[in-house]
Amino acid sequence: MDYFRPRSVEEAVTLGQSPGAAFLGGGTDLVLQMRQGKVNPQCLIDVHNLAELKEIRRNGDVLELGSMVTFSEVSDSNLLQDSARALWLAGQTMGSPAIRNQATIGGNLGNGSPAADAIPALLALDAEVCLRSQAGEEVISLAVFLERYPLLAPGTLIWKFLVPLRGWQSGFAKLGRRRALAIARLSVAVALKTEGETVMDLRVAFGAVGKRAFLSPALAARFIGRELDVHWRTEMISGSQELVRETLKTRASAPYKAVAVGGVMHQALMLLQE
């Protein structure tokens, strides 16, 4: 096996053309999968320390998040706390402190777990993904990107995320089997744009319901243009329950998740910033 530590994204992408190459981020998934024999890369391209991939910065009305930003960096960021609260909240609850210190948001996407904590938050925040490969750059909406199978073509590097800053409120909640080190059994992210008491726009995303996290424009559409009255929370809760019931159909987890998602939705709504 070969191991490379490129000094630039360009170099990383060139090295990514090698047969059997895999990009190595924090390693919390890949190192384990290699050891378990689930993947067998011929060549590791370690990008975890690439400065270009570690930036959290505001660029006009867009927030740029490098793919190698760790969950700890997410949860320590005041910028994210103020402007991308759903992601900031997801950063607090993922894994354990030691995992959060290593695991990256790009790795979270690349690993492709249905329970990935950052993905519902990024979906709700209408993030775009920037990819780099020998073919060049590609910027694609995360929601569209998640419809690709397989997710990533060989040699494609997840470069960064672009999160539009539109002054939305957002929240995130997850349900695990215990209070730390818990894989999400359900997660809900909500992003909301209001004018006065009227819902101008709404995005609702779910994790660990099906193979990949997804947005539900249909659920959101029911509330756009409506007042934030006493009923909206209750209807969001019952709407999410219907949605999960329909999505999971006869799966073993359906009876539980179809009820419990209401509680997770409730919590996500409570966590929407003031």
Partner: peptide, 11 residues
């Protein structure tokens, strides 16, 4: 330990 869960300090 990933599938047989035991309480953490927070539990």
């Amino acid at each position: 330990f990933s599938s047989y869960l035991i309480p953490t300090a927070l539990d």
